[in-house]
Design a protein around this nucleic acid. Sequence first.
DNA 1: ACGTATTTGTTCGTATGTATC
DNA 2: GGATACATACGAACAAATACG
Lengths: 233, 233
Amino acid sequence: MRESFITPVVRTTLTADVCKKMVGHLLRGDWKEGDQIPAERELCQQLGVGRASLREALKALEIMGMIQTRLGEGTFVCGRSEFYSRPLLWAIAGSVKEDVTEITEARRLIETELAGLAAVRANAEDLKKIGRHLDLMEEAGHDNARFQTADIDFHLAIAEAAHNRILLNALHLIRNLMKQWIGSALFMAIAKKNPEQARQGMKAHLEAMAERLLQVHGEVVREVARDEQDSEA
Amino acid sequence: MRESFITPVVRTTLTADVCKKMVGHLLRGDWKEGDQIPAERELCQQLGVGRASLREALKALEIMGMIQTRLGEGTFVCGRSEFYSRPLLWAIAGSVKEDVTEITEARRLIETELAGLAAVRANAEDLKKIGRHLDLMEEAGHDNARFQTADIDFHLAIAEAAHNRILLNALHLIRNLMKQWIGSALFMAIAKKNPEQARQGMKAHLEAMAERLLQVHGEVVREVARDEQDSEA
DNA sequence: ACGTATTTGTTCGTATGTATC
DNA sequence: GGATACATACGAACAAATACG
């Protein structure tokens, strides 16, 4: 059977096709998180495209956070959360330095609600993880570097206990803008499965940090300005 | 004063740097929506990089929906909504049913809170805009296309009245996944500056839409599956 | 209607820096 | 240190589509 119409030419670029195909592989699970995907030159042959076209697709996927290439090593598959949040990061990149108060507000909202969800949904494993990070924070004492790392993990554990990846990613984004501490009352509230108390606990701590954040913001602004000068030169 | 430590070497690729710089131009407004940006070879010289590096950055931006290249014509700047929604399409392409639930939850949270903020912060101009879109929704009647457009603008107007760009952007991203209607009770609550009533109003409407969204999701999955078959052939 | 210049699409060759063993 | 594998980056060249005189 033959088509009587001339097939309408759909103009697609090789790069886009390759991109689509690779996204398919990634989402279908042919390439799993942490896997190393074939080398560039090998992929070229398999796909039957030039190296430049492949690299353009690869770079696009990397900037979107789906894969990560390490010089001299190869290309590896990133986790889902990474690739969900990366485009968001680009999207808000322009508004970041504009207004810290808005970010603070957004964070307070998201984190407060996540704490509430966590209080309802956290399972035994979640609680164990949260408690472990809380211990690490205490152990860190006045070692600021260690404390911050533990603090970040602590917040992340709570967010994970809420079991909502979208909000988790949103928090991921905002988190990088602020380093801060948190008390133990919050953990207790979550452990006791008291959503309202958990919300209030988180809220109070975050509000207490708002002032300190405004100070930090000054440094961030200067840093950003310096970066732009560098790239401008 | 000099640092006694060796500066930690930060490894960045040329492509990423170029990408960053161009995003800066786009967000800063040097290149506006619809504008044609300089030709590839011209940009190469201006930036002092090879064409491959530039093209990799360009392709990444195109796939993210920030720019659009047309063969034989040039490269043009896309609108904001385009570049907000594009990454989501990639992300959603392989999402499973549970993701939709999470997205719905995230949206309910954000939009609910935005409504509450709007009730506190909306000024006269905001209210006028919200009211206008509400009128358009009523005028649309059973014309679904018109109704949806008006509805989207209506939600957007409320979000804008909250005066928080971070949350607005987040909503922007999520909004494209869902088309739905909203009643007028919400508007009244906002006009009356009643935050709690506004929150409840928005919440009820969004929850009512959750079921319908799960139906729509089935269609999306089928559409994506068809696209993949095409690209496989 | 035709041809030319411009612009993106695509490939290849080559040189270099980096990580692993 | 050396060998190997890999990504990084540049430049040249040709193809394809479009715009413009």
